[in-house]
Design a protein around this nucleic acid. Structure first.
Lengths: 273, 273
DNA sequence: TATAATAATGACTAGCCGGTCACGTGTCAA
DNA sequence: TTGACACGTGACCGGCTAGTCATTATTATA
């Protein structure tokens, strides 16, 4: 395990126990038996550590759930998988999940909150796609309410789970949520949220133009030739009138092993698949 | 406006903007144009200020929603009122609601969290009663899931509202939630939460024995004779085999104008009505 | 073994925090 | 006019923080 990982592990544990603000760098370094100076050899600042933790886990969570969903052979099995693996992944990353549930928004840096919000919006978009796959056009118009409400139910059970701290039957909970989701999707008529802008607050901030600007900056964070060339070609493809999805997805997969590109690759995959 | 109220107002505003931890006493006193020393004439510590704010608003919110619900003439009107006034009250106390949504659990003092959790549990209990009133015995067994899920939906819409910061049609949202709640209450079959202990984490902590102990301490926080006598009689009535609700509710109403007794009076009313 | 290069340390700085308290300042009754 | 008293002030205290950097320890090379 590299020192970076060692620090992230220790920090995650302490953050989950006492909160991010209340945990000092000194405590983190004491906990993993290194000096304060050594910490600053791995991370430029405490904020950068928090950023790295968020980036790492948010990516893993979204990717793992997406992966599990895609392994379902029928739409309804996919929905079931969605619930099962959302809870499984969250229990696997207990520490991070606790931070997510407890810490919520304030206290930490504003740009970090934006980043979390971005990932949350991405997860909502995935859920929306899944719901269309399962229920088809009958949810047209009410999809935004549905996403919000299903998300709310999942959050409520997660919170309940973290408060009680007891193991639970994930399959049974998933059964229950599939039934509730199906009821709401097929029988609900009264719509409240009218359009996507009411559901996705940050998503529009990350327009294609914005992504191209970000790619410029990210280009300086790597020396790998394949990665540099892929970024250059991505920028060219994205500025075209009709970017070809196959090319973009291909180029994106060249960037996926570098954690610095996490959110851009997730965004582009979500946008072009 | 008393200085205490002035401070609470300023603090609430700053807490909502920047978070509780990140707001210093100095900033609060600067904001309301008093000296740091004057602050400590009104509150013994920063924690006591936070405590007072929580106590004040949690009480108002629960009481106002309860009041509005009880004014509905039919059960279904009551349910509609529940949603309408939950959102109305939360928009009225925007600042406090933001703190509740953002701050969540960690960072602040552990006993404060317990107190918030207690009020949340109390609100859940009220909702459970309401749901039984509206849907009757058909929800027997699935009431805990229902409470959790309805709460989750409300939370989700509240969060969405505070992120978008736009005014919205409360009536329409209430219509939508009544429909969803009705669907779940009448058609849902798959149960996940089996018993009340899974839903109410802190409620059991506040047993009658515990309340009697608390009354002993609260007795020292007042000089009013009516209040002192009422507490004494309450203790006696509560230690009896079969406490008489009418007497308890009567005695409780003698204590309701003193904010120090807020949570005890709420608890006892909830327990004996 | 001697030297250079790298890794790691922890005392230190500057600044913020909650909380205190000796010291004005303004207001009354005598 | 005087003195007593309560109200209000802000400099100050001890303790904490994130982050730095001269010094030391360790390793690699010759």
């Amino acid at each position: 395990m590299t020192r970076k990982q060692l620090i992230m592990d220790s920090a995650l544990q302490l953050f989950a126990e006492k909160g991010i603000e209340a945990t000092s760098v000194q405590q983190i370094t004491d906990h993993c038996g290194i000096s304060k100076g050594a910490f600053y050899l791995s991370f430029k600042s405490k904020d950068e550590l928090i950023y790295a933790i968020i980036e790492h886990f948010m990516n893993n969570i979204i990717r793992e759930v997406d992966q599990a969903v895609s392994e379902g052979s029928t739409p309804s099995e996919k929905l079931h998988n969605y619930f099962v693996h959302t809870f499984k992944v969250m229990s696997q990353y207990t520490g991070f999940a606790e931070i997510l549930m407890k810490e919520k928004v304030s206290a930490i840096n504003e740009t970090l909150i934006e980043r979390i919000q971005f990932y949350v919006d991405l997860a909502k978009k995935s859920l929306e796609k899944l719901l269309f796959e399962v229920f088809g056009d009958q949810i047209e118009g009410k999809q935004y309410d549905l996403v919000l409400v299903v998300n709310g139910m999942v959050q409520a059970y997660l919170q309940n789970f973290f408060e009680s701290c007891k193991p639970f039957d994930v399959i049974k909970l998933a059964d229950s949520l599939v039934e509730k989701t199906t009821l709401l999707a097929t029988k609900s008529e009264v719509v409240f949220l009218q359009d996507s802008s009411q559901l996705y607050s940050r998503m529009k901030v990350y327009s294609i133009e914005h992504i191209i600007e970000e790619l410029d900056q990210l280009q300086q964070q790597t020396n790998d030739n394949l990665e540099l060339e892929s970024i250059q070609l991505l920028k060219e493809e994205l500025t075209m009138e009709n970017p070809r999805p196959a090319i973009i997805i291909g180029l994106v997969s060249n960037l996926e092993k570098n954690e610095n590109f996490n959110w851009v690759t997730l965004y582009l995959k979500n946008h072009f698949i």
